Amino acid sequence: MADWTYSNVVPWWPYVFILLAGWLPTDIWRYLGVVSASRIDETSEAAKLARTIATALVAAVIAQLVFFPTGALADIPLPVRFGSLAAGFAAYQLSRRRILAGIIAAELVIGGWALVAILI
């Protein structure tokens, strides 16, 4: 008797699900943002509020990664994670706010700790 499970009848359904449940809801808001961006005044109170909320959300995610990590990041000691954060922020400020410089500096601190941990 044939196996009539949905994944055997329609083997491409996970890709459709990813498209409909993952990509489409996210990108609709992106496209609406692009279309409406030309009509928004960057100096308005609403734009300032949106920028403030977005910055706060990014800061909250970074704080969660540093102070309450999960997975492999949880194996890295807190002083190393905090030092990585400090080094990344310092590099960002010293490089005239280049994000890539901050990311590379933070990665070098964590990578250096990993190298030392392996060698010891």
Rank of each mutant, 00 (worst) to 15 (best):
F17G: 12
F17P: 09
F17T: 12
F17Y: 13
F17I: 11
F17C: 08
I18L: 14
I18R: 12
I18W: 12
L19C: 12
L20W: 09
L20G: 14
L20C: 11
L20S: 13
L20E: 13
A21T: 07
A21F: 04
A21I: 03
A21R: 00
A21V: 03
A21M: 09
G22F: 09
G22Q: 14
G22V: 04
G22E: 10
W23D: 01
W23I: 00
W23N: 01
W23V: 01
W23R: 10
L24Q: 08
L24V: 05
L24M: 09
L24W: 12
L24D: 03
L24F: 11
P25I: 00
P25T: 01
P25E: 00
P25V: 00
T26K: 05
T26P: 07
D27G: 09
D27Y: 15
I28G: 05
I28V: 15
W29H: 13
W29L: 02
W29A: 04
R30H: 12
R30Q: 11
R30S: 05
R30F: 04
Y31N: 10
Y31A: 06
G33D: 14
G33H: 13
G33M: 15
G33P: 13
V34M: 06
V34A: 02
V35W: 12
V35E: 11
V35D: 10
V35F: 14
S36C: 13
S36H: 01
S36E: 11
S36I: 08
A37E: 04
S38H: 10
S38T: 07
R39Y: 13
R39A: 14
R39D: 13
I40V: 13
I40S: 09
I40Q: 06
I40W: 09
I40P: 05
D41C: 05
E42Q: 09
E42F: 07
E42R: 11
E42C: 07
E42P: 12
E42K: 12
E42H: 09
T43A: 05
T43M: 05
S44Y: 02
S44W: 02
E45Y: 08
E45K: 10
A46E: 01
A47I: 11
A47R: 05
A47D: 05
A47Q: 08
A47K: 03
K48E: 09
K48R: 08
K48V: 01
K48W: 02
K48A: 10
K48F: 02
K48N: 12
L49W: 11
L49V: 03
L49R: 02
A50C: 01
A50S: 07
A50E: 11
A50I: 03
R51I: 00
R51H: 04
R51C: 02
T52D: 06
T52S: 14
T52K: 06
I53K: 02
I53F: 10
I53H: 08
I53L: 07
A54G: 03
A54P: 06
A54Y: 02
A54F: 03
A54L: 07
T55C: 10
A56I: 04
A56L: 10
A56V: 07
L57C: 15
L57M: 15
V58N: 15
V58K: 15
V58P: 14
V58E: 13
